[in-house]
Design a protein around this nucleic acid. Structure first.
Lengths: 167, 167
DNA sequence: AAAGTTGGACAGCCATGTTGACGCATTTAG
DNA sequence: CTAAATGCGTCAACATGGCTGTCCAACTTT
């Protein structure tokens, strides 16, 4: 990985070179892994998996979310999501109502039990992430957000940022 | 994001409150998802999956990596890893040698074909991540690293940071 | 009325994780 | 030297959560 500066134009600043990219790949992998693992125990105690949590999370985030919007967020097939939603429904954690303007739509929301579980799971995420935020400081957090936003393709970024507003 | 400073003791700074935590959870989820999806097509063309890529990646990163060290990095069972390593071996992408100081150990390294594939996959990751780095700027990247490091438990952080040095 | 959209359901397959049990070579401890 | 621990591989069974394909019902749009 030694470099020859003479050989070619080298427009990229240092932080775009291989070691810095690898560092990002690795930290993203390990950071994501540890954050998600922090709720596995609690989930397993309910007999649920991560797929259930993702659905719970986004339904908590946007009550009366339509199935089709949840599908776009999760980027899985409706068959996969259907299984998850059925299981959440059977356990009394999620309920669906028929849309009023378009009665084909199912609007999803958490039951009180579902909201309670989601809150407990979120607490674990908050514990981990707020510790990381606190030790890094606010301007690091801003950078953290900025880089991650840049990883999201344009067409999807709007949807993700929309989660912030619609509360 | 308006605040009431009067109402209660509020020891946490603003960036540690729920909306900021949720934002981090979501960006981490979507950012990680999109980064990993960026290599799926290439992987599928080789008949490999993400599990294979993770192994390839870390073996590329630390030639002569021991199986036990790879197990610690990946945090999966040796049975799961065994299947992946067998498949990589059958395809001529990874080879293992017997350790010289301890002959029970298998030291893993990429074959030339494996190195070529890993480099191609890394190029896709680099494309995505360097675009995000470039649009966010160097100080944002520093913050990105800092927060992610804080997500990794102390005992593992050493191992992850060690990947940087050992090149 | 015909065509398109949305969502549910059934059936099966695949990738990748899990546990548990065991074997073998090698190294280390007593 | 023998016994225990370690590193690694493997067989077998099973769980999770993706996938495709197909079909149907309900509703909206044209």
């Amino acid at each position: 990985m030694a470099v020859q500066l003479s050989e070619a134009p080298r427009p990229s600043p240092l932080f775009l070179r291989e070691p810095e990219i690898r560092r990002g790949v690795e930290l993203l992998y390990f950071g994501y892994s540890h954050l998600t693992r922090s709720i596995d125990e609690n989930l397993a105690a309910q007999g649920l998996g991560r797929a259930h949590h993702r659905a719970l999370y986004f339904i908590a985030r946007q009550p009366d979310l339509r199935v089709s919007d949840l599908l776009k967020l999760l980027a899985i097939t409706k068959q996969s999501l259907g299984r998850v939603l059925n299981e959440l429904g059977e356990r009394g954690l999620v309920e669906s109502r028929t849309g009023k303007s378009d009665r084909r739509q199912r609007l999803l929301r958490l039951t009180p039990a579902g909201a309670k579980l989601e809150a407990a799971l979120f607490d674990a995420l908050r514990g981990r992430l707020s510790a990381a935020y606190a030790s890094a400081g606010p301007s690091a957090v801003a950078g953290f957000w900025q880089v991650l936003e840049g990883l999201i393709p344009d067409d999807e970024r709007e949807r993700v940022i929309g989660l912030q507003k619609e509360r």
